[in-house]
Write a protein that binds this DNA or RNA. Structure first.
Length: 473
DNA sequence: ATGTCC
């Protein structure tokens, strides 16, 4: 990024001086300098949208996205003409991470990793257009969209206890399946319980290092323990909702005379008819993703217990990183009801927050920074609002630093898999191309991102997780 | 991200 007009507020928060409304870029100097120029352009565009409250922000893992940057956070006030944007949520609505805690340790699995990775790969469908065993009717898909993980539980996937540790207790209220096109629904009829492609994965990890012993105790983790992370979203349904509403919101913006600095920022006022329709459809997409991760949790339990019969797997936490949520935030000493877009950014609720399960009340919300294939991930905990100035948001991953196209030119999938296998990290994927696109070298340094996340006050590190086995789409 | 261009 060209550092002209970019000034540090402190070593981990930067502002762009030439914008009428504030921008805050989170990250150390190196991360900001290496960030694509497009990120600056896109976040400055976001400040020009009606009803923005406070600053438009980017997390330390930010990179170029559709309209909004991935790693972007922006809150809007409905009473000040605030908008909702499909590009501000992302095409993969409610893409997120379900983190599972097991009762087994590295010594219990190290001799079985090949069996484990094959069992997972054979049990959890992955890849573009992948379908599972589940076939739904158009009536049933409507129930998915209102029930979320609760629907999956009723169908026999998972245990009641899981839902305690899922955002919204597994069911997003006020979802409107009627606002979702038949085309979107049809795309999803065979895709429940599937991982998808791209950066989605299911990974077996070991707790390598504990940073915060007290929070680790609350999270129920200790060194050497096996953790499983499921990263996926709302598949074809969410994508189709995004595509449908991009058109609808662009029309609304035109009709209502909203100036769009970039047509990819198609949006409508939260209080407009189109805005309300998208919000209902997006919430239906959120439930689809929550149900999807609930089913995959069940499939993971099946696959893991076929290799390690005594394994017991609990949900540590499930949090989305592509959403727009209605939340109460205190701004300039006034409590306001805002719509917070988090695109490639996770919610990070502070200690004591009413929406947290009892188990995490003292520590704050578990936050998951999913690293690139083979490099490791971090568990963090949400900070008090005095420290987190980003509407209780934090980084969601390592963040790409190179395009997929560029990565393809630089790496071969097969070679990457062999190289990782030599490090005893086992990868299974439907496509070698996908693996090359996801090369660790195409991502930022996850250690740097996690450190910047902590030093920027967004969340504090609890544990580093080292990858053992990973299945990719 | 995505039935990777109906």
């Amino acid at each position: 990024m060209d550092m002209t007009d970019i000034k540090p507020l402190d070593p981990y928060r930067w502002t762009i001086t030439s914008t009428p409304k504030p921008v805050i870029l989170y990250g150390n100097k190196a991360l900001i300098e290496e960030m694509d120029e497009k990120v600056r352009e896109q976040i400055v565009n976001v400040t020009k949208l009606p009803g923005l409250v406070g600053a438009a922000m980017t997390m330390p893992d930010a990179h170029w996205g559709y309209g909004f940057p991935i790693g972007g956070v922006a809150a809007f006030d409905p009473d000040e003409g605030g908008i909702i944007s499909a590009g501000g949520v992302g095409f993969d609505i409610s893409c997120g991470v379900r983190c599972l805690r097991t009762n087994v340790f590295i010594n219990d699995v190290s001799g079985h990793l090949l069996q484990i990775v094959d069992a997972l790969f054979n049990t959890v469908p992955a890849g573009v257009g992948s379908e599972g065993e589940i076939r739904l009717s158009m009536t049933e898909i409507n129930k998915v969209m209102t029930g979320g993980a609760e629907w999956a539980l009723r169908k026999g996937y998972g245990v009641r206890e899981d839902l305690n540790y899922v955002e919204e207790k597994g069911c997003m209220a006020d979802a409107e399946p009627d606002n979702v096109s038949d085309q979107a629904k049809k795309r999803q009829l065979g895709e429940m319980g599937t991982l998808g492609s791209g950066n989605h994965y299911l990974e077996v990890e070991v707790v390598e290092k504990i940073y915060d012993a007290e929070a680790a105790r609350a999270f129920g983790i200790s060194e050497g323990q096996i953790i499983i992370a499921i990263h996926c979203g709302s598949r074809g349904l969410g994508h189709q909702i995004g595509s449908d509403y991009l058109v609808a919101l662009a029309k609304a913006a035109g009709r209502l005379g909203i100036h769009l600095p970039d047509r990819e920022l198609a949006c409508a006022p939260i209080l407009s008819e189109e805005g309300q329709r998208y919000i209902g459809a997006m919430r239906a997409g959120i439930n689809c993703a929550l149900a999807n991760r609930q089913i995959i949790t069940h499939l993971t339990r099946e696959a893991m217990s076929s290799i390690i019969p005594d394994i017991h797997i609990e949900t540590l936490y499930d949090v989305s990183h592509n959403t727009c949520k209605q939340e109460k935030h205190r701004v300039d000493n006034k409590e306001r009801e805002l719509f917070v877009h988090r695109k490639g950014a996770t919610r990070a609720l502070p200690p004591g927050h009413m929406l947290l399960p009892e188990r995490y009340k003292q520590t704050g919300q578990p936050v998951f920074i999913g690293g690139s294939m083979g490099t490791g991930s971090y568990l963090l905990a949400g900070n008090p609002v005095e420290q987190n100035q980003a509407f209780s948001s934090a980084s969601h991953g390592a963040g790409r630093k190179m395009s997929r196209h560029q990565a393809l030119k630089q790496w071969h999938g097969r070679q990457l898999i062999d190289e990782l296998e030599r490090q005893k990290i086992y990868i299974r994927s439907k496509t070698m191309r996908g693996v090359a696109e996801e090369a660790p070298g195409a991502y930022k340094d996850v250690d740097e991102v996690a450190e910047a996340t902590e030093k920027g006050g967004l969340a504090r590190r609890v544990a580093f997780l080292r990858p053992l086995a990973c299945i990719k789409g």
